[in-house]
């Protein structure tokens, strides 16, 4: 089972799972967020086709209050 680093914390995902699957698991569907995988943006159009490898580093970000 691949172990990812999501926002700096380890997390197991089922083998073969995609960014889209993870978004569903994290209950982020329909929200505004952006994904970066190993330093590269994963555009929305590629969420379904992008799958994970062991050790992948994932960032999931949103907009928050700031000046």
């Amino acid at each position: 089972m691949p172990v990812l680093q999501i926002n700096g914390k380890p997390r197991n995902v089922p083998p073969g799972s995609s960014v889209e699957n993870l978004i569903a698991t994290l209950q982020l569907e329909g929200k505004r967020f952006a994904i970066e995988l190993n330093g590269e943006i994963v555009p929305k159009s590629r969420h379904a086709a992008t799958t994970f490898n062991d050790g992948d580093k994932l960032e999931v970000v949103i907009a928050v209050g700031g000046g």
Binding site: V61, V64, G65
Partner: peptide, 8 residues
């Protein structure tokens, strides 16, 4: 706005 990690 600022950009920050979502609270997983």
């Amino acid at each position: 706005v600022a950009i920050r990690r979502v609270n997983i």
